[in-house]
Computed example of a mutant assay.
Amino acid sequence: MTTEEAQNRSHVLDRLPAYLNGTLEPAGAERVKAHLVQCEVCQHELAAWQTIKDAASVATASAPLPSISLLEQVWAKIDPPVREVVARRRSAWHVLLYLWRVFSRQVPLIHKSIWPASALVMAFGCFLSIMSLHTYGRRSHAELILALFLPVVAAAGVAFIYGAENDSALEITLSTPTSIRIVLLCRMFLVIAYNFMLAILASAVFASFEGGGVAPLVQLWLGPMLLLSSLSLLLTLLIGSLFAVFGVVAMELAQALPANAVQGMLEFHLSLSDWWQTNPLILCLAVVLIVFAVLYAPRQPRLA
């Protein structure tokens, strides 16, 4: 080993900062102090560290210290009390605001063809019912046509609110922390509310021609609209949109075209059953189907 290497090993350069700050253990501090007496290299290094320490002290002294109250306010913003955080999360206002934001952002995500298609088909159904009234003069038959069209149109719209083929932003929807249950309920409410307003308008137009009121017409189609829409949502989640549309159309035709056996042959006649209107049974069935669909919704694949 050369003399220079021996001197380098004997230096205490790496211990000088701790020695200068007074954080070195007593025994080590004594060894460094004794070494500095005879080592010029370490003396120069210690002087450099002392210069840095003095400059830092001057900079710190020139900056005013924040007051205690200011520090408390800063810490309160950074680390609010747990109770306050929980209260904010559970605040009814924040929940409503959150739901409104989710609700309003679903409008551009719903398939754009639903809106004009629903309006056109309902207008066509209203036209057919008015033409039937003027051609045959049978009010019940014309009302039946209107009552058949309106629920099916709403249910068909609900069938296309979810799915990769209907939602171009499905991957984004699935990757967000928002529950798919909330998304489905918001979209279903939007579509049903839109079709409800269209149905009210169609009923008002029909009533203006036949001279009756709107309320009896609404009583004919409101319950079936909710039931078929709920069934459509459930079938969409279980099977798919097209199967949901076929399912609700088949169910509507099955109750509207009862078969009677006459001389060994089946005869069909268009009619509207008393139970297939707005009544507690239909509304309860609609609620049950919605609940089942909402409970099943999380089984859909998610990306997050």
Score class of each variant (00 low, 15 high):
Ser69Met: 08
Glu72Ala: 11
Val74Met: 10
Val74Cys: 07
Trp75Ala: 03
Ala76Gln: 13
Ala76Met: 11
Ala76Tyr: 12
Lys77Arg: 13
Ile78Thr: 09
Ile78Ser: 08
Pro80His: 04
Pro80Trp: 01
Pro81Glu: 10
Val82Gly: 07
Arg83Asp: 15
Arg83Ala: 09
Arg83Pro: 05
Glu84His: 11
Val86Trp: 04
Val86Pro: 01
Ala87Pro: 07
Arg88Phe: 05
Arg89Asp: 15
Arg89Ala: 14
Arg90Ser: 15
Arg90Leu: 15
Ala92His: 13
Ala92Arg: 14
His94Ser: 03
Val95Phe: 12
Val95Arg: 14
Leu97Ile: 05
Leu97Cys: 09
Tyr98Lys: 02
Tyr98Trp: 10
Tyr98Asp: 02
Leu99Asp: 06
Leu99Gly: 02
Trp100Arg: 05
Trp100Lys: 02
Val102Ile: 08
Val102Met: 04
Phe103Trp: 15
Phe103Glu: 01
Phe103Ser: 00
Arg105Thr: 10
Val107Arg: 10
Pro108Cys: 06
Leu109Tyr: 06
Ile110Asp: 08
His111Glu: 14
Trp115Val: 01
Pro116Ile: 04
Pro116Asp: 06
Ala119Thr: 09
Leu120Glu: 09
Val121Asn: 05
Phe124Met: 14
Phe124Ala: 14
Gly125Asn: 00
Cys126Leu: 06
Phe127Ser: 07
Leu128Ala: 07
Ile130His: 08
Ile130Gly: 05
Leu133Ile: 09
His134Leu: 13
His134Ile: 11
Thr135Leu: 13
Arg139Gln: 00
Arg139Tyr: 02
Ser140Trp: 13
His141Gly: 06
His141Cys: 06
His141Gln: 05
His141Met: 11
Glu143Cys: 01
Ile145Pro: 00
Ile145Met: 05
Ile145Val: 02
Ile145Cys: 01
Ala147Asn: 12
Pro151Asn: 06
Val152Thr: 04
Val152Trp: 03
Val152His: 01
Val153His: 03
Val153Asn: 00
Ala155Arg: 00
